[in-house]
Design a protein around this nucleic acid. Sequence first.
RNA 1: UCCUCGGUAGCUCAAUUGGCAGAGCGGCCGGCUGUUAACCGGUUGGUUGUAGGUUCGAGUCCUACCCGAGGAGCCA
Length: 434
Amino acid sequence: MAEHIYIEDIAHWEGQEVTIKGWLYNKTDKGRLQFLLVRDGTGLVQGVVFQKEVSPEVFEAARGVTQESSLIVTGTVRADKRAPGIPGGYELSVRNVEIVQLAEDYPITPKEHGVDFLMDRRHLWLRSSRQWAILRVRAEVIRAIRDWLDNNGFLNVDTPILTPSACEDTTTLFATDYFGEPAYLTQSGQLYNEANIMSFGRVYCFGPTFRAEKSKTRRHMMEFWMVEPEMAYADLDECMRVQEEFVSYIVQTTLKNRAHELKVLERDTTLLEKVMPPFPRISYDEAVEILNEKGVPIEWGDDFGAPHEVAIGNHFEKPVFVHHYPTQCKAFYMEEEPGRPEVSKSVDLLAPEGYGEIIGGGQRTASYELLERRIEEHNLPRAAYEWYLDLRKYGSVPHSGFGLGVERTIMWICGIHHIRETIPFPRLLGRMYP
RNA sequence: UCCUCGGUAGCUCAAUUGGCAGAGCGGCCGGCUGUUAACCGGUUGGUUGUAGGUUCGAGUCCUACCCGAGGAGCCA
């Protein structure tokens, strides 16, 4: 009885008879020779079926099996340089083929398809090599995020998804009914993080966040995942130091553990390999100068649009910090720069290669009076923020934090064009199926 | 919300000035012992997004609507 193995381990089984349980990815019919490309979730391997070497029943099964049928193949593992697959280089001399279920008219062929067609069939599109590779990178990025934070003094403290009010005052919220009271899907766990650090020192929350903005670009989704570390007794410099260590670890770990997947994606990893601390740091003032020199005009005081982020990101080979944005561009809780209240202790991290902002963060104001004033200036409902003000009343400390957009990070690492492919079932403007 | 582009066979697309709606792929049948999105021969396949209008004649022109894509703003 042949042992059931997974394709990712196939190199360990050379010369032995094994069983692989999976689905038919593609087939080449050469008459008396059938090539079955089989996937099992861990990889892709070619089964070779010679008519002379199997029973007529088995050969008929191999000849008649259709794309995406579920099947169990048994055969001997053989090294062969010609063998395609992931990891490739090994193939199966097939002795037996058992069809579990014959798929009829699988709609997604190995040929070209349009976005609308594929998105309507996202539940099936996930089986394609490219999607498989991206989502395996996603899992690795998430694991790296948790590993680094867990191993560097951060405690995972969960923040609520249903919230009574806006965390930030700028963006649109998804509203729902909470037994007669309005409730909103969270757009950030940050304010709760700030409460949590006063108990735990360094914390992070990690979960889905929701923005009801009608953004229709390749970089936006209504539902996306964000990891938000927050640190007591950390200033802006410390915040940047943590970010560059964190991001470098995520990138290097993924390069190491997901090399096959990045190869499937034909990702040129030259620049990713250089993602190591320190990252260049420029002030908003310097960024404005660079932009105007590069012919992407901007006036001091304006926030960056996509073209500005891309231009600055492309100016450097590594991710670049832009710090001290104008106070008016950033959220109400940002700390002011002493002696220069028109700028805040904020920092964004912009990825190279045109991927734009992947982190937003900074030092939060520790002052009760300043926070109180800002809440007023932003016309926020004071009552909803009483608890948040309390944090400045009982042992306030300088503190900093940031939020990393998981999907944008995956886009950058995978080198892909659109954010919709970085999550299994994207929630986009006008699209919530499947 | 605004701007731009698009909707023709299961899929990806073509159709000249308004004049017989086509090709490749897929499917099916046949051939092939090394294919890598195989190849070769045959075959199947249409309410041209919807509703009106102009015209001898509309995929093509006009009006409205629906749907999709890309971008802007905003953001991660």
